[in-house]
């Protein structure tokens, strides 16, 4: 990818906010162990995940456009599993409006996940990755701040991932579909951010002085997402 100039010196800054909440919440790793374990059990029921595992236990996303589609499918699986758990075990003090909105977001992410699964199955049935096993052990699902900070991380990461992957896509139909999804992720991101702090929908941690949202490389995104996924993901050939 030739977007190094865009990311350039800010790369470290971009990556930082994605990790800060995790560290800050490490305290909750223990407090939230029960909720986390529940999440894992539920998520584990999803699908078998060993059909495309390499012998070493690593899930390869593959190459070319299929790699990009698997990359998106992996991220949507993560988001869908997260919001499903948020809705199954709502945080303390959730308002009616928040529950309605988060339920809508959960449905959107589930639709994205199911869409990619069906689309990849149709286009490249032998190359689709299996169901991933999320790791939400660092999330305290009873705690509003923990849930919304994680949601913010996922939504901002999703936006940055699609923005960065657009130029890797070779097929116009896929590019247009990625564009149709990324703006919805951005709408989610703005809403979640406003719930955390009204007016932070597009603050300087995600939109730079040129008025540009983040665009991250596959490796940057996977590094940020990996702590939330038990399977080791390899995206080295995505788009190539």
């Amino acid at each position: 990818m030739s977007d190094n100039k865009l990311l350039g010196p800010d790369e470290a800054e971009f990556a930082k906010p994605l990790f800060v909440p995790i560290k800050r919440r490490s305290f909750f790793m223990y407090a939230g162990a029960t909720a986390g374990a529940t999440a894992l059990l539920l998520a584990g029921c999803d699908d078998d995940d060993d059909d495309t595992d390499t012998p070493s236990g690593t899930v390869s996303l593959g190459s070319g456009d299929v790699g990009v589609l698997n990359y998106a499918y992996a991220l949507e699986q993560l988001e869908a599993a997260f919001y499903a758990q948020v809705i199954a075990t709502p945080y303390t003090g959730i308002t009616t409006e928040e529950r309605t909105a988060l339920t809508a977001i959960a449905r959107h992410e589930a639709i994205h996940r199911d869409f990619f699964k069906a689309a990849i199955t149709a286009a490249a049935p032998t190359q689709i990755i299996g169901g991933l096993t999320p790791d939400f052990s660092k999330v305290t699902f009873t705690d509003r701040n923990s849930v919304l900070m994680t949601a913010k991380t996922f939504e901002d990461l999703g936006v940055a991932a699609y923005n960065g992957a657009g130029s890797l896509i070779k097929t116009n139909d896929y590019l247009l579909i990625a564009g149709k999804i990324v703006s919805v992720e951005a709408r989610h991101a703005a809403y979640i951010r406003d719930l955390l702090s009204n007016g932070s929908f597009a603050d300087s941690t995600v939109v730079n002085a040129q008025g540009l949202d983040q665009a991250l490389t596959v490796s940057q995104v996977l590094a940020a997402a990996q702590p939330f996924i038990k399977d080791k993901i390899n995206g080295d050939n995505v788009g190539k």
Binding site: L6, V182, A189, A190, F201, A202, D213, A215
Partner: peptide, 12 residues
């Protein structure tokens, strides 16, 4: 795309 998602944040 980076402008596009900022517009979506605005819209939201």
């Amino acid at each position: 795309l980076q402008i596009h998602s900022v517009e979506a944040r605005h819209a939201s």
